[in-house]
Design a binder for these strands. Structure first.
Lengths: 189, 189
DNA sequence: ATCGATAATCAACACGGTGTTGACTATCTC
DNA sequence: GAGATAGTCAACACCGTGTTGATTATCGAT
């Protein structure tokens, strides 16, 4: 998707960075739907027309940022392609929580009240294949898979949400262990 | 919140109903942010000004509909106030899934791509107290409660989402049993 | 240091949805 | 039937949008 092949012009990097910072700041205060291009560029202190050089509107910008994050997430997942899915504490979970901690502001915003269902949906898509393998390794009741899978992925999103909302006090190691435990042994009992 | 004490004028009921129908229809096609008051009232075949008699904008309308739904949900939950939380298949879960099936269109929209994080958040709030009781009955590790609770509620939301997306092929009884099982015995194993 | 390329600025524009107004007409409740 | 109130209609100023062309500032590369 994104042409990261050639390094961008310094001015372009600067502009996108300023806009992303401004958007992140505004998303702490209000929902994306309430954010206008005008106030975004006002906050970033740049001409309104500059915004349209890179994004169609605020939601398009949000989508591009989201895609960039999931591209990186996919890279991480791909590195664990041939991993033993029955291992006790999954290294991939640890990597996931480390990645989240590094980008905690964006994850917090995305999973917050002002967040985005698309983010949850995309998270679902990314983890689907991975879950399928885990599922096949444990030979479960087949027609329930969609529900089990939805339960696990959404539940994990809930954990992540609670974690980033508290600004990640626990270590990624703790979180990976806990999440793995909940996935395997259930939420309550 | 909403003054349901006195019965509304027939004209008011008609107007709100038409607007709600139009909104539900439009939400199947596009996101809330893309829906204008103009096209909403055009579709409902009424004067644009009439909309402003009851709602500030499209999102305000969505919020009022959401609140109304959660009011009814709270009523259901309150009826199960003194219930044995250690029972095998929880009657409250059954009631929940029946309620969802009756309002499946709205739940589908609310949990869809075009949905609303506020809905998830409000669902969290409503089920928090109930989960607390369930938790206290099983005497778990205390400092993990927030995470366990988030996992269970979000996970359940995932199940609900998958269910309404398929237009509820399974019965509420089946779903209540399955959800209860996943909450107690985990997502995978 | 210079030069060609291009990013960013600025002013200006038409467009369309917004939210509100006042006068009217239609419909409801009692 | 009478008084109250909901809905209609036309009109209004307002504001953000998305785009334009001309100008200036900054970049990367030689």
């Amino acid at each position: 998707m994104t042409e990261t092949g050639k390094k961008e012009d310094r001015r372009v990097r600067r502009t996108k960075k300023l806009l992303t910072q401004a958007l992140t700041e505004l998303l702490q205060q209000k929902q994306a739907k309430e954010i206008t291009v005008k106030e975004l560029t006002d906050l970033a202190d740049m001409n309104r027309g500059t915004f349209y050089l890179y994004y169609r509107d605020v939601f398009d910008m949000l989508e591009k940022i989201r895609n960039e994050m999931f591209e990186r997430l996919n890279t991480i997942i791909a590195l664990h392609e041939n991993e033993d899915v029955t291992a006790q504490t999954k290294p991939i979970l640890l990597e996931l929580f480390r990645f989240i901690a590094e980008n905690r502001e964006m994850w917090r915003v995305m999973l917050s009240l002002n967040g985005d269902m698309n983010f949850l949906h995309q998270l679902n898509e990314v983890l689907r294949e991975k879950c399928l393998k885990l599922y096949q390794a444990t030979e479960q009741n087949e027609d329930e898979f969609d529900y089990r899978y939805s339960y696990v992925v959404f539940g994990s999103a809930g954990i992540i949400r609670a974690w980033v909302n508290r600004n990640c006090p626990e270590s990624p190691e703790q979180m990976a262990e806990m999440t793995n435990r909940m996935i395997l042994s259930g939420g309550i009992a």
